[in-house]
């Protein structure tokens, strides 16, 4: 029970840091003015067009596709697989479980392999491509290492040494209802959860901020209407 209490406290703390941290960053991004009209052309000339452009950026990584096919391939495979994996994880947080979440369960587990393959490709690039290696920081390696380790420990639970999934879900539900339930103490699971805690804590202070940050890119989120509407923000408004 000691273990359950420790992990419960850690999860509450990490969740708070994640929500407050990312919320604060979003508030800062939203307040930061973009004084110049700089949509990368050809750019949409209507709001709806911008929404469509952003949708393509988020779902198929359009700009990355145009700039580098290999990075796009590995990056996109990694992100799509990650999305599937996270969707599969929703079953721990819902009762009853949504039908879509139940239906993708069998695919979600293979997505883990795709996710690791994508990460391996992205990581290899940071060693093998000179220009990328030159701009790679330690934190770039650590982020990739963290995600690879989360993936491997997850696969460990799935394929090497099982945990009691029903008890684990009860523990997660217990956190959500403030009704503490015992956490199974299996090696792979504890490693997996510890790494996830680290991910939650570093999220608001790392490159993972590209998730909210993406929506604030002036080159992608501006309407191409400099003649129709005078653009003012920050010092151009003074």
């Amino acid at each position: 029970m000691m273990l359950s209490v420790i992990y419960a406290i850690l999860f509450y703390a990490a969740t708070l840091l994640l929500i407050v941290g990312v919320g604060r960053k979003i508030a800062i991004y939203a307040r930061t003015p973009a004084p110049l009209k700089i949509p990368t052309t050809p750019a949409p000339i209507t709001k709806a067009g911008v929404v469509w452009r952003m949708t393509k950026e988020v779902t198929v990584f359009q700009s990355l596709f145009k700039s580098n096919k290999w990075t796009w391939l590995f990056g996109w495979v990694f992100h799509v697989a990650l999305a599937l994996v996270l969707l599969r994880h929703l079953r721990y947080f819902q009762e009853p479980v949504w039908t879509v979440v139940a239906l993708i369960q069998p695919f979600g587990k293979y997505a883990a392999f795709a996710m690791l393959a994508g990460l391996a490709g992205l990581w290899a690039r940071r060693f093998l491509v000179d220009r990328v290696r030159y701009i790679t920081n330690l934190s770039d390696h650590l982020m990739l290492a963290l995600l690879v380790a989360i993936g491997i420990s997850g696969l460990g639970i799935k394929f090497v040494s099982h945990t009691d999934i029903v008890s684990l879900k009860a523990f997660v539900q217990g956190l959500m209802y403030f009704d503490l339930q015992p956490l199974p103490s299996d090696g792979f699971l504890l490693v997996h959860l510890t790494l996830v805690l680290i991910l939650m804590v570093v999220f608001p202070i790392s490159k993972l901020l590209h998730v909210p940050g993406l929506f604030f890119m002036p080159t992608r989120n501006q309407v191409d209407n400099p003649r129709e509407v005078r653009h003012t923000a920050g010092w151009t408004a003074e």
């Binding site: 708070l16 929500i19 407050v20 919320g23 604060r24 508030a27 009762e95 029903v166 009860a170 539900q173 217990g174 959500m176 209802y177 403030f178 009704d179 339930q181």
Partner: peptide
């Protein structure tokens, strides 16, 4: 003020489900 509202919102969200115990299967 923003900090206060953020904290209040999070607290409200978290306390919503406290009404009942966690759903666990009755094996």
């Amino acid at each position: 003020r923003q900090g206060f509202w953020a904290a209040a919102l999070i607290f409200a969200l978290f306390s919503l489900p406290v009404m009942a115990g966690a759903p666990v299967p009755d094996i």
